[in-house]
Computed example of a mutant assay.
Amino acid sequence: MKTNPIVGQGTPLHLWQSSAHLTQLPYIDIAELVPEGSRAVIIAPHPDDEVLGCGGLLQGLAALGRPLQLISVTDGSASHPGSRRWPAQRLSVVRPQESAQALHRLGLPLHSLKWLRAGFSDSHVAAQEDELRQFIQRHLKPTDVVLTTWREDGHCDHEAVGRASANAARAVGATLLELPVWTWHWATPEDSQIPWHRARKIPLTTDVVARKRHAIHAFASQLEGDPQIGLPPVLAPYVLERLLQPFEVVFV
């Protein structure tokens, strides 16, 4: 993991918009990523990562009628350290509720969505990485397509979940797709640390982006900081604009 990469306002959107690497990425169709007969298993380190990383892709999968399995690794209770407004006990209840509302706003069939809450400790997933791998592996089939955060995404939980998911997928013969989320914050537009040769673009229509934006606004806790202790929001406007481009990127 990079040394403390998620600081400041990160790489401005206009630099990404002029990135030669990003502009030249080949497009890929959702039906090709998750073929008929496959189930999509989305493994999110925290409640919201599934929407931030692939809210557009999820809409496409729902439209195709692909079976969906969501695994929330943690309840996201450590997002506001030291806050009285958002203490860990409150967050552990609120954040999964926010995810449910966000998925509803995306138009996902919640009645048929299989959703597991794994209960690992927010910000300490790496300490239980092997246990997480075993947990994930128990719930995978060889025909699954696993979508999770990139193993080099810059957040300790994102990276640990990415590694555990990759190892579990490899063990059962499932397909792995990785999603950059915080990468857009710390990386530079021509950054050689990004595996551009594995990167593919999923085009998103204006309506799909609008639904993704509406879904993200269900995460009230993440849109609010705590001014009393000088805590900025996790999902500040400059973070959101980088995640609401007319495409999503996956590493195949």
Rank of each mutant, 00 (worst) to 15 (best):
T3I: 10
I6K: 12
G10S: 08
L13N: 03
L15R: 09
H21Q: 15
T23A: 12
P26G: 02
I28W: 00
I30E: 02
I30A: 12
L33A: 05
V34H: 02
R39L: 05
V41Y: 06
V41N: 04
I42A: 05
I42C: 06
H46M: 04
H46G: 07
H46W: 03
P47D: 11
D48Y: 01
D49I: 09
L52I: 10
L52M: 11
C54R: 00
G56L: 03
L58W: 02
Q59P: 05
L64H: 14
G65A: 08
L68H: 07
L70D: 05
L70Q: 09
T74L: 07
T74A: 06
S77C: 10
H80Q: 08
H80V: 04
P81L: 06
P87G: 08
A88P: 13
R90I: 12
Q97G: 11
E98Y: 07
L103R: 14
H104N: 11
L108H: 09
L108Y: 07
L110I: 13
G119D: 10
G119N: 10
F120T: 10
V125R: 00
Q128C: 08
L132D: 12
L132F: 12
Q134V: 14
H139C: 09
H139F: 10
V145A: 03
L147E: 01
T148C: 10
W150C: 07
R151M: 06
H155D: 04
A160W: 01
A160G: 06
V161A: 04
A164K: 05
S165M: 03
A168T: 11
A169F: 02
A171F: 02
L176G: 07
L177F: 00
W182Q: 03
W186P: 04
P189C: 05
E190Y: 00
S192W: 02
I194A: 01
R198M: 03
A199G: 15
R200I: 04
L204H: 07
T205C: 01
T206I: 09
V208M: 13
A210R: 14
F219R: 08
A220S: 14
I229F: 03
P233D: 08
P237H: 11
Y238N: 10
L243W: 14
L243V: 03
L243D: 02
P246W: 10
V249P: 01
V249L: 09
F251C: 02
